[in-house]
Simulated scan of single mutants.
Amino acid sequence: MLHPVGDLPAGVYWRRRALVLGIAASLLGGGGWLVASTVPTTETDPQVAASSGPAQPSLEAPSLEQVVPSLASVQTPAAPEEGSATASAAPPAEETAAAPVTAAAPDPGQPCTDDMVAVDVLPGAPQATVGSKPTMTLVVTNVSGVPCTRSLDAGLREIVLLDGAGARVWGSNDCFPEVSSDARVLAAGEAVGFPLQWGGLTSEPACTAPRSAPPAGAYSLQGRLDTKVGDPTPFTLVA
């Protein structure tokens, strides 16, 4: 190789060899630069290495929004307006009136005392003819404001005829006494009537004395229920 052999002078062959070597050297240099540019270097920028490395957990404290839930979804009732139904629905405790205490219903089994009843005689007419048989009614009324019970037995009811001086002339139980058991509950203000026909003659208790027609004049009728005696009612006998 160092001593080229050929027909041409030796200088020619040396120039050819130098040209080939130069081309080869250029090719080798360019190839090496290309390879170096494509192969990553092992020394990298610290900032690049930090950003490309695996993510490290953050040690910073969580923000307040992450710890305390948002209050946007919490609905706070609005204060009622003055005079609204909500504001006036519940009055202050000191202004609340106490519930009325219902009084116990009256016991209808309580007895009717003499002060609780009235006894009256209602004649069919304010006057009657001597010797006639007029009709009259004994009326018992509960004048109290509560119901009560009173015995209205026939033996306890009586109508008497009194003359102008107040002397007894006739009694409904003298000659024809009746016996019955009649306990009743009288409502407040209730009145019960018992009609009776008078025979037109005088009488005495036990009906032992002779009977006769009383003369014409001014009389009064008076009712009685056991121990309760009513007020007299004017009555006139005419001839």
Rank of each mutant, 00 (worst) to 15 (best):
185 V>T: 15
21 L>N: 00
90 A>W: 12
5 V>M: 02
229 V>R: 07
98 A>I: 10
212 S>W: 04
159 I>L: 02
86 T>S: 15
84 S>K: 11
167 A>I: 08
84 S>L: 05
156 L>V: 05
10 A>D: 12
230 G>S: 00
105 A>Q: 01
105 A>N: 03
119 V>T: 01
204 E>R: 13
212 S>N: 11
144 S>G: 13
69 P>D: 14
114 D>Y: 01
120 D>V: 15
55 A>S: 03
209 A>M: 02
128 A>K: 09
148 C>D: 02
163 D>S: 01
127 Q>L: 07
176 F>R: 14
237 L>G: 05
239 A>M: 06
214 P>D: 03
132 S>K: 09
17 R>S: 07
176 F>D: 15
210 P>R: 05
70 S>A: 07
192 V>T: 04
172 S>P: 00
28 L>P: 02
25 A>N: 00
108 P>G: 08
144 S>F: 08
126 P>R: 13
146 V>A: 15
94 E>G: 13
4 P>M: 04
133 K>Y: 07
36 A>Q: 03
141 T>S: 02
44 T>P: 00
167 A>P: 06
183 A>F: 05
158 E>A: 11
229 V>M: 00
128 A>D: 06
10 A>F: 07
89 A>V: 13
161 L>F: 00
192 V>G: 04
7 D>F: 14
117 V>M: 08
208 T>F: 03
179 V>T: 05
139 V>Y: 01
12 V>G: 10
151 S>I: 09
59 L>W: 06
77 P>K: 12
31 G>L: 04
42 T>E: 01
159 I>C: 09
199 G>A: 06
181 S>C: 04
153 D>H: 04
31 G>Y: 03
184 R>F: 05
179 V>R: 10
206 A>C: 09
199 G>L: 01
157 R>N: 12
124 G>C: 04
83 G>C: 12
133 K>A: 01
183 A>Y: 00
185 V>M: 02
194 F>E: 01
108 P>Y: 05
100 P>V: 07
96 T>A: 15
31 G>S: 02
180 S>A: 02
65 E>L: 14
1 M>Y: 13
19 L>T: 06
210 P>N: 02
108 P>W: 07
171 G>A: 02
38 T>G: 05
175 C>N: 04
180 S>K: 09
217 G>N: 00
162 L>K: 08
44 T>Y: 10
16 R>G: 14
219 Y>F: 06
186 L>V: 04
154 A>N: 06
234 P>L: 06
71 L>D: 07
74 V>G: 00
90 A>S: 14
9 P>M: 09
98 A>C: 00
227 T>Y: 01
97 A>G: 14
20 V>R: 11
165 A>L: 11
189 G>M: 00
85 A>P: 09
194 F>V: 10
226 D>N: 07
182 D>K: 12
136 M>G: 04
16 R>A: 15
150 R>H: 03
196 L>W: 14
79 A>K: 15
150 R>F: 05
208 T>M: 04
214 P>T: 01
1 M>L: 14
238 V>C: 07
77 P>S: 10
121 V>W: 00
73 S>V: 00
226 D>R: 06
176 F>Y: 14
137 T>V: 05
94 E>R: 15
67 V>F: 12
42 T>Q: 10
227 T>I: 10
152 L>N: 10
238 V>I: 12
223 G>L: 09
209 A>W: 10
164 G>S: 14
193 G>Q: 11
77 P>E: 13
200 G>M: 03
222 Q>I: 06
83 G>H: 13
220 S>M: 06
43 E>V: 13
76 T>L: 15
7 D>N: 13
63 S>L: 05
